[in-house]
């Protein structure tokens, strides 16, 4: 039966072709994977030393001018607890890695992968030997930039705070200068008045004018001392008062809004309610009229007749 069935006529050839195809696929896959992982090329080993292994992972791509040229093969600690990172680079790219080349940890864009970037060395310099150490420069990541920026801003804010405190310091130069100016202005005004008064009346009484000047000067000094206090008091209390007023107005506005909403919601119900109540009152009135006319109630309820008179008294 086996020899005679036409379906088994080329069985050996078919099975052989299937097996060969499968093997070819496996070999192709192995070759592809090996090529992708640099397993088959001539490898050029290099190293660099870093203070920290943060952000560095095994298998991380190594790039030169944006082209992938290798990967991180191994990460280990040396006797000084320094991180030794071993790179495997395709040998064909070694011609650009010379003295002067350096490795950096870079982030591709704001949200991109982190890669090891190797810069090209000087054209006249010799190619680095296998397992040579590349100088490593850690480039700032976004987090680092943000942290640095934050520190910078904090520093600026601290400076601003110090400056404001210095300006507000009652014993500081600014406040004292302003106070002096105010005092001087008040003094000038008083001096002008004194001068006017002196021109008119003090020519014949120098002693009196001197006394007047002294008094006025004292008054000016007193006013100069009180005015800044008053201004400071106002400056401190006014913002708080305005905040309270604003809060009160805001609350009033909210209350008004709520009230209006409530009125708008209730308004449509008022008219039907009143109409209903009126109708019920009328119905009740009709019933009452009917009851009043019924025996025996009508004998006890006023049914027309003569109107009553307010009781009179002979001795009120």
């Amino acid at each position: 039966m086996k020899d005679q069935d036409p379906r088994f006529k080329h069985l050996e050839a078919v099975v052989g072709a299937f097996v060969i195809g499968a093997l070819a696929a496996v070999v192709a896959a192995v070759l592809y994977i090996g090529t992708e992982n640099d397993l088959f090329g001539d490898r050029y080993p290099l190293r660099f030393r870093s203070h920290t292994g943060t952000g560095i992972k095994k298998g991380m791509p190594v790039k030169l001018s944006g082209f992938r040229i290798g990967r991180i093969d191994r990460i280990e600690l040396d006797d000084q607890a320094q991180v030794i990172v071993r790179l495997t680079i395709d040998r064909k790219y070694s011609k650009w890695i010379r003295e002067g080349s350096a490795a950096t940890l870079q982030q591709e864009g704001l949200v991109g992968d982190t890669v090891i970037s190797v810069s090209a060395g000087s054209p006249g310099s010799p190619v680095l030997a296998d397992d040579a150490f590349l100088p490593f420069q850690e480039e700032e990541t976004v987090t680092d930039i943000a942290l640095n920026l934050s520190e910078s801003v904090q520093a600026v804010l601290a400076e601003v705070r110090q400056t404001v405190a210095w300006i507000n310091d009652p014993k500081g130069d600014i406040k004292r200068t302003v106070a002096n100016v105010e005092r001087l202005t008040a003094g000038l005004e008083e001096t002008r008045r004194n001068a006017d008064a002196l021109i008119l009346s003090a020519a014949d009484d120098a002693d009196r004018a001197g006394s007047l000047i002294d008094n006025l000067s004292a008054m000016a000094d007193d006013a100069g001392r009180r005015l800044p206090l008053l201004l400071d008091n106002v400056a401190v209390r006014l913002p708080a008062m305005l905040d309270r007023v604003e809060g009160t107005v805001s609350n009033a506005e909210k209350a008004s809004l709520e009230l209006r909403k409530a009125a708008e919601q209730a308004a449509p119900r008022v008219s039907p309610l009143l109409l209903g109540a009126e109708e019920l009152v009328e119905d009740t009135g009709d019933v009452m009229k009917g009851v009043k006319k019924m025996w025996p109630l009508r004998k006890h309820i006023p049914q027309g007749g003569r109107p009553g008179i307010v009781p009179g008294d002979s001795h009120e």
Binding site: T284, V287, V291, M294, W295, L297, R298, G304
Partner: peptide, 23 residues
């Protein structure tokens, strides 16, 4: 109130007219 009065009216209905014509 209306219900009470109506009930009272119904209860007193048989007595209506027991004391001569209404005013």
């Amino acid at each position: 109130v209306a219900a009470i009065l109506l009930f009272f009216s119904a209860a007193c209905a048989p007595l209506s007219g027991c004391s001569g014509p209404a005013a």
